[in-house]
């Protein structure tokens, strides 16, 4: 087993920001991985498997976040989560 550690920058692109439904999507996806995953915004750290912690970040549209993961599937987890953010959680807006 290889222990990995990785981080990526993501942007909240959907107009409504990181509200309950996107947060629900993040937690659902993050919980599929064994790695510890965190979202960091301006030094505030939120467990990506905790919906309450993510909501507390109050990340609006345009917010820059850092995704950090540590664990055997860290790379894979970041890959999947980055895609989720880039797709705006399936919420289209212009």
């Amino acid at each position: 087993m290889v222990y990995q550690s990785a981080s990526r920058q993501v942007t909240v692109v959907n107009p409504q920001g990181l509200h309950a439904r996107p947060a629900h999507a993040v937690v659902t996806l993050a919980s599929r991985f064994r790695s510890d995953i965190e979202l960091v915004r301006d030094g505030e750290i939120a467990d990506a498997k905790s919906i309450l912690a993510i909501l507390t970040l109050a990340a609006a549209q345009g917010s820059q976040l850092t995704l950090r993961a540590r664990g055997e599937d860290a790379g894979e987890a970041l890959e999947a989560l980055t895609d989720l953010f880039a797709g705006g959680f399936g919420e289209n807006g212009e």
Binding site: R21, A23, H24, D47, S50, I51, L52, A53
Partner: peptide, 13 residues
Amino acid sequence: FAAHLMMLQDPGL
């Protein structure tokens, strides 16, 4: 209610 449920089961909480 899906979000509701996730809040209740939140690991931090």
